[in-house]
Write a protein that binds this DNA or RNA. Structure first.
Lengths: 217, 217
DNA sequence: TCAATGGGCATACGAAGCGTATGTTAATAG
DNA sequence: CTATTAACATACGCTTCGTATGCCCATTGA
């Protein structure tokens, strides 16, 4: 039998990533002991070093997994919108909502950059950015937004989103904070809109409101 | 004599902060050995623990010092502008330029959040945000920008700025990247402008251009 | 079927690094 | 003048990481 062998190996990798993800997400990268969370997976550090080289390598794998999930979620959101602008807006709100999750905040937004360096250089991070970039590219082709470099705009918007999410999540009153953040975010985003012609221009006033007004605490 | 005593103590603190700032800025927080950089200041860890409690406490002190310097620089920039909008724009560009400095990037933007948590909760970080918030408040009073919560807008703008700066600093071609970033940043910022009345409305097209087009590499 | 090879993982060891507990000195207070 | 306290240094133990080594099982080729 060839399969059981390969499956055991894949399972070991998955168990290590899962245990590390749990530990990194709750304790943080620096405080997570490799002895502890490998033991919680029924393994030792030997397996870890064999598969991932070192602790940083495992963090990379964990982040790649999370980032793939985030990217998939964004694609789903933008795909089921009525028009492109709405899809982009939904994508932004989904991005903020994801950034509110403690695991993503801790691993991807806080420890990741400190240990692995600037996220814009990660091979995985490009997935989320690319998704937003493609949306903006289509909006630009369509004439809905002004002619700006889509990737650049995506990075600025994601930067604002991520900071907003961290601010919201750590504020005293997350609900009130999110409302203020969304309102201001909407105003900023409208800077992108093409106001000279009115071709394909969607309803601007109501477009940002849905769903995000009541965010999870 | 009372003074020499107090001065020696202050000097010890300053030497520790200086040595730590150097080590954190070049090696990074995690890789900086307390034994090493205290020795480089002619001291031992004993002094460190006495004055700052632990390694995190020292990082806090270092960040507080850097943040104070940043805040002072921002105030100078915004004070010498001709009008409020221009002052705000200059402040943003100065913010981006500061975020390009390796020491600030490493200590304040990368290691700081990982070790001390979300920057919006730091007592010191409020200084820079407050500066931008005040600028936006005045612009709002003046009618130049739309009625958005000034602090919220300041946080969004600073978030976009910081991410842009990190992207620029780590890109293959920082100069080209900065040009694209500034252009898109300008478009976004114009979302804040009040376009209904034309009272106090400054020249929008040229206002973002100065100085930042040629950023330091 | 039976070596033999190699990959998957555990164990053992050494080296730092951190935090604390304990000195030691010098200045200030009474 | 003594006693106390602040400002550091020294010493110790604990944890953690990385590597070197060893074991075992599965695949492979004859």
């Amino acid at each position: 039998m060839h399969r059981p062998r390969k499956e055991m190996i894949a399972e070991t990798r998955a168990k290590l990533i899962g245990a590390a993800r749990q530990a990194f997400g709750t304790l943080g990268y620096a405080e997570a002991s490799m002895d502890d969370f490998t033991a919680s997976a029924g393994l030792t550090r030997g397996a870890l070093y064999h598969h991932f080289g070192d602790k940083k390598g495992l963090l990379q794998a964990v982040i790649a997994e999370i980032d793939a999930e985030m990217s998939a979620r964004l694609k789903v959101v933008s795909a089921k919108a009525d028009n492109l602008w709405q899809g982009f807006v939904d994508e932004c709100t989904a991005y903020i909502e994801m950034a509110l999750e403690p695991e993503i905040q801790r691993i991807v937004l806080r420890d990741g950059p400190a240990v692995l360096g600037d996220p814009s250089q990660w091979p995985s991070q490009s997935a989320c950015i690319r998704s937003m970039t493609e949306s903006l590219q289509r909006l630009s082709d369509e004439g809905t937004i002004l002619a700006v470099d889509p990737e650049t705009a995506a990075r600025l918007v994601s930067g604002a989103s991520l900071h907003a999410a961290q601010w919201i999540a750590n504020s005293d009153d997350p609900e009130a904070t999110s409302k203020k953040a969304v309102k201001a975010f909407k105003v900023l985003l409208e800077g992108l809109l093409n106001r000279t012609g009115r071709l394909h221009q969607p309803d601007q006033q109501s477009s940002m409101q849905p769903e995000i007004d009541q965010l999870p605490a």
